[in-house]
Design a protein around this nucleic acid. Structure first.
Length: 469
RNA sequence: GGCGACGUAGCCAAGUUGGUUAAGGCAGGGGUCUGCAAAACCCCGAUCGCGGGUUCGAAUCCCGCCGUCGCCUCCA
């Protein structure tokens, strides 16, 4: 049983082999921090979080690097509009981003470098590229000479002729030898732009070079996995490859993984289209894991449509998963039902792993988790309890946690209201024994209005919060 | 215009290197349990966008058509 991953470079699923046994070096492109993150960022972060968790589950040590682009035209413009220091503005949104990622239960990347802290490495790479003839200086700017790179376009499968002919006329084009060339370094044009001294004067890095420099500095010339959204394939990742491979004379990454775009009302959600749902908005309406269920429910490479209906479906699905963790009602620990349960556990784990091994098929894996849920519920109904039952539940929790789902909600027990609710339920049990249904129902309905769902079983009543905390 | 992806039950969606009864979830209908309810469990639905073709056999391969979406400019 071995992992296969779809590689954008070959457009095929390939056997996963790391450069160093047992260690995965993974670089994922992070956000440009000039505004709050939206649910598209959340989707991408969850996708690579799950990939990382599964690799760790399989026993790899994962060194996960994600960058923050904190030096960029948009940040500069935003800072001008709001009268702030560009780097302070960026810092504010970096803090916000990290907070959002924590709320979404994303494991923090191992290393989170920024452009502003990688300047030396960037300058070093640009200089090497110039020395090797892959780049040239032009009035304080430095450009990459695309025509020097004979396999340019191999990731996006784009012919250079096309790239050139569709290239729009932009400011600065007259400084380039060729319209397809792209900036490695930009000269400072105004005193309010962040700038650093360089052999070409004061200036700042172009967009693509930062990732090349960070990947090399923290992970070495060749990494195992390079990830990001499909929208980054061209030009960003194509240019990263051009720079890094021309500079280091080594492949930049073995596997290129790209997640599909999140769509809203049939079109891609993006800042430029203005159809944004922020992570704050998402979390004001739904629990983080509801969104995670939505993401897990379809393949990471496919586009993902977001709307209230699918979110409601995801919410119910999450409830079903959690429902399997309710305590047993009996104590039977042997018999055919126990064997059936143990078989279901075994099968669920095997199928879960087989699905995940097939290019992180989370939707399939999740389906097998639901099979286990059913087996647990059936066992509970059959009066199974004790160790076999606990083991099944703990297996479910383990597999769910590989997907980043936290099925146990501490909120219930931790609530200040718990003792009072339990007192009410005790009173209600007495009433039920006396067949005072009106009063018993009055308490149940009253609690329901407060968001507490009461459930009666043979051995007594249980309760849970119906709505999110 | 160039490159690419996708189209499976009311909705989401797995399966697509061809081969037993096309996973799973949500919604809906029927039933069991229950004082009622909730939860849970059982039963019920698709021949896989459309039209051809290859094959003993196709959702899975080939051709055509229709539709949706992405990239080609900043973007996860």
């Amino acid at each position: 049983m071995s992992l296969r991953v779809y590689n954008t470079l070959s457009r095929k699923k390939e056997e996963f082999k790391t450069l160093e046994p047992g260690v995965v070096r993974m670089y994922v492109c992070g956000p440009t921090v000039y505004d709050d993150a939206h649910i598209g960022h959340a989707m991408s972060a969850i996708v690579f979080d799950v990939i990382r968790r599964y690799l760790e589950y399989k026993g790899y040590e994962v060194i996960h690097v994600m960058n923050f682009t904190d030096v960029d035209d948009k940040i500069i413009n935003r800072a001008r509009e709001t009268g702030q220091e560009p780097l302070k503005l960026a810092q504010y949104y970096i803090d916000r981003f990290m907070e959002h990622m924590a709320q979404l239960h994303i494991k923090p990347p191992t290393i989170m470098p920024r452009v502003s802290t990688t300047i030396d490495e960037i300058i070093d790479m640009v200089q090497t590229l110039i020395e090797r003839g892959y780049a040239y200086e032009s009035e304080g700017d430095v450009y990459f000479r695309v025509r020097m790179d004979d396999d340019y376009g191999k990731l996006s499968r784009r012919k250079l002729e096309h790239a050139v002919s569709s290239e729009r006329q932009r400011f600065g084009d007259e400084l380039k030898e060729d319209p397809a060339d792209f900036a490695l370094w930009k000269a400072q044009k105004s005193p309010d732009e962040p700038a650093w001294p360089s052999p070409w004067g004061m200036g700042r890095p172009g967009w693509h070079i930062e990732c090349s420099a960070m990947a090399r500095r923290y992970l070495g010339p060749t990494i195992d996995i390079h990830g990001g959204g499909t929208d980054l394939i061209f030009p960003h990742h194509e240019n990263e490859i051009a720079q890094s491979e021309s500079c280091n004379a080594a492949p930049l990454a073995t596997y290129w993984l790209h997640n599909g775009m999140l769509q809203l009302r049939g079109e891609k959600m993006s800042k430029s289209l203005g159809n944004i749902i922020s992570i704050d908005e998402l979390l004001s309406q739904y629990e983080a894991d509801v969104f995670r269920i939505l993401v897990l429910g379809s393949h990471y490479r496919k586009p993902l449509a977001y709307d209230d209906e699918v979110m409601e479906q995801a919410r119910r699905g999450l409830e079903r998963l959690r429902g399997a963790l309710r305590p047993p009602t009996g104590e039977k620990t042997e018999g055919p039902e126990v064997e059936a349960l143990q078989e279901a556990v075994q099968l669920a784990r095997e199928r879960f792993e087989a699905a995940m091994d097939d290019d992180f098929n989370t939707a399939g894996a999740l389906g097998h988790l639901y099979d286990l849920v059913k087996a647990i519920n059936t066992a509970r109904a059959a009066g199974i309890g004790g160790e076999p039952f606990e083991k099944a539940q703990s297996e479910l929790k383990t597999l769910a946690s590989v997907l980043g789902l936290q099925l146990e909600t501490q909120a219930r027990a931790a609530s200040d209201a718990a003792p009072f609710i339990e007192l009410l339920l005790e009173v209600r049990s007495t009433l039920r024994k006396q067949k005072q249904w009106d009063l018993a129902d009055y308490i149940r309905d009253g609690l329901a209005k407060l968001g507490v769902q009461v459930e009666d079983t043979r051995d007594g009543s249980t309760w849970r919060w119906e709505k999110r905390e």
